[in-house]
Amino acid sequence: MTVAPVVRIDAGRASPLRAVREIWHFRDLFLALGTRDLRLRYRQTFLGIAWVVLQPLAAAGIFAFVFGRIARVPTDGQPYVLFALAALIGWNFFSSVLTRASTSLVQNPQLVTRVYFPRLILPLAVIPAALVDLAVTVAAFAVIAFAQGHAPDARLIGFPVAVIMLGVLAAGAGFAAAALAVRYRDVQYLLPVAIQLALYASPVAYSSSAVPARWLAFYYANPLAAPLELMRWSLLGTPAPSLGALWFSVGAAVLLLIIGAAIFRGIERSFADEI
């Protein structure tokens, strides 16, 4: 007979190690919530997938008009639409994980007030659906790139690295936003504005080579800049970000993940009372 596990309930907080182990124990819930989101999105099959592709295409089209035609932003020698799309793929992944993670608690009050599970599962569970969206947009990109005469090469190895970096950044910010949204409803108004700002502060619509050299160090303080340039490099062979900038982003992503999780766990205990 196995010894029954003892759960102790008191006013203290579980150790981080124990919290991680518990999330692992509930991994099936993570998958179940992830597949729920996917099923719901793709159930109206054709339109579901179409929107995932149309959204970045429309954004790339607008950028192409404003930045490519009117402002004539340099594109490192690439056709503008392809140039913008290569970074929009990563940007959309980042912003959709962050946005959906931020509402994952306040949109599931039933789960939070009626049943126990590690709450971090909720913001984490938005990632599988975002990854599938990412795969769909990459497929669309591949078709366009192939039509333009591009072929993938060894630089593609940088793509998963960029995705992981963006995912960790989005998760860290998403944990904090999800927890704060329970306490302060302002978060749902502030976050879209912040995301818009971050879009223009990042090399999506333009190349970081357009940034004056003396500002570059300052520019790469934005941890999104390096992984987005890395993604564009891996897909189109535009200039790569410096290794220094990449390592800085990796460090910032890990730090943000730890801080985000700490904020989340600090507020977590009162979710059920406040939501």
Binding site: V7, I9, D10, A11, T113, Y116, R269, A272, D273
Partner: peptide
């Protein structure tokens, strides 16, 4: 464990 106690265990 939906909510946490203020006192005791």
């Amino acid at each position: 464990r939906i909510t946490t106690p203020t006192a005791g265990w």
